[in-house]
Design a protein around this nucleic acid. Structure first.
Length: 152
DNA sequence: GCCAACGTTGGC
DNA sequence: GCCAACGTTGGC
């Protein structure tokens, strides 16, 4: 099993929104970064555990856990001309962008802020902590995942 | 609202 | 293939 972290802006889509969705399941769409896409395509398997991270939030931090319930498939919004995620260079024969479905496992009892994560030496190598990191989907080590969840 | 960091685009 | 210009991300 693999472990991941995925960012979302709570003003756009929050952990509470996921819990409110049907079956607590959502299409994780709109990923328009090749590195993030490749992680979804090559690494994400059903049952993988995902830390849900609120970015552009006050404060930013890890807010919940979700699980991959549908492995990578073409992101439908890339074909929708009315969508902000429409990509005229993508085609149905050769789709450029992928989505996965994730199901909420639980919301953490409290938000683990980025500030708190930065103070933990064992997490110093996490990509999330690295300066200038902008990846919205990134792998997390099992020991990092377990440590963060245990902070609550 | 600012701005550093980074990815993408497009002219050459 | 290089790289300047531009747009976006995301913490502060």
């Amino acid at each position: 099993m693999n472990y991941w972290l995925m960012k979302t802006e709570p003003d756009v889509y929050s952990m509470d929104d996921m819990l409110a969705d049907k079956n607590q399941t959502t299409v994780w769409e709109g990923i328009r970064n090749y590195q993030a896409r490749n992680f979804m395509r090559d690494g994400m398997k059903n049952g993988d555990q995902v830390l849900i991270y609120h970015s552009n939030a006050k404060p930013p931090g890890v807010i919940g856990i979700a699980e991959v319930v549908k492995e990578a498939y073409p992101d439908p919004f890339q074909f929708d001309e009315k969508s902000n995620y429409f990509d005229p260079k993508s085609s149905k024969d050769n789709p450029r962008w992928l989505a996965v479905d994730v199901k909420a496992v639980k919301k953490l009892d409290r938000l683990i802020s980025l500030t708190e994560l930065k103070e933990i030496e064992a997490l110093a190598d996490m990509r999330l902590i690295q300066r200038g990191n902008r990846l919205s989907v990134m792998p997390v080590e099992k020991k990092e995942f377990d440590l963060i969840v245990a902070l609550v």
